[in-house]
Amino acid sequence: MDLSIALLLGQDGLTNGAIYALLALALVMVFAVTRVIFIPQGQFVAYGALTMAGLQSGKLPGTVWLLLGLGALAVVMDGWIALRDKQLRKLARSAAFNLLVPLAIAGLIAGLKADTLPLPVQILLSLLLVVPLGPLLYRVAYQPLAEATVLTLLIVSVAVDFAMMGLGLLFFGPEAFRTPAFSEGSLTLGELTINAQTLWVIGCSAVLIVVLFLFFEKTLYGKALRATALNRVGARLMGIPTTMAGKLTFFVAALIGTFSGLLFAPITPISYDTGFLIGLKGFVAAILGGLGSYPLAAVGAVFVGLLESFSSFWASEYKEVIVFTIIIPVLLWRSLFSHHVEEEE
């Protein structure tokens, strides 16, 4: 291996690492606020990229139907409770949020000829279509179980992931798609040529990491969100709306996931089943950081990215084996430093 190959691999690893970092951060955040281990995080990557590809080919992405369906389901669930408690205003508000907003988005997308619009508008439309799925999923699948154990919530996550992957195949078909880069061109630094999309990926990740870190560590709202994870009842008694916190967190997670998909699709072709593996690599990164620390998760993600790109050079067949086995020494290390038997929730 000479320097130019090493630089190329390093750049590749760093780019992938930046994507994993974004996902790892979202996972850490969702876990910290809701105790949900959000396996479907990776599906948002695939949904984002494939919705974008659908828009660009002038088709109405199947995501529209999922958005409307989940919205209707949320209204039915809210309505059931609202009728029972005789609070019709709540029902009206739920209908406005969960039915009218998705309808408006669907109408907008059906009305516009998205394939003729400039790229930034297409990005915006993809986000509009996919991101609301996050809070809707929280409402439909997680909120009724918010008091359940971490284990039950994890099984729900896997089930949601299963369903989303199947729906992804139905909506987008089995083909992989690549979308155009945010901006063309490249930057040359001596031996190294960095293309613009790589800079986008790394730049966006860095900014998001800093923002999340500051939000959770420095602001009152961020601390309030963390409090809901530690003690839901206590947080509610202190006036923190835990349901809102859950929806907000899922919104941010969906935003990060979808945006990662849009960032990533110009670099790697993405198909309906890519999301699961990408998401799990984000998990490996988050676990390297102990599922609790944003900066450590980011470092873990870059490590996973580099490990992946260098092992694809030296032992390409064993790339995935190596990436997923790295978790074992990490668990060993963590195991050695945890001494006391704890009660599970």
């Binding site: 998990f283 084996v321 978790i327 074992i328 668990l331 599970e344």
Partner: peptide
């Protein structure tokens, strides 16, 4: 595998099982 993950709090085990489940699967295939 158990001695690595069972001492850690509950969610590390399922996440660990996903990781080595995948890694063994890829191993069978390579």
């Amino acid at each position: 595998l158990g001695s690595l993950t069972l001492r850690l709090s509950g969610h590390y085990l399922p996440l660990g099982t996903m990781a080595w489940g995948l890694s063994l699967y890829y191993l069978f295939g390579t």
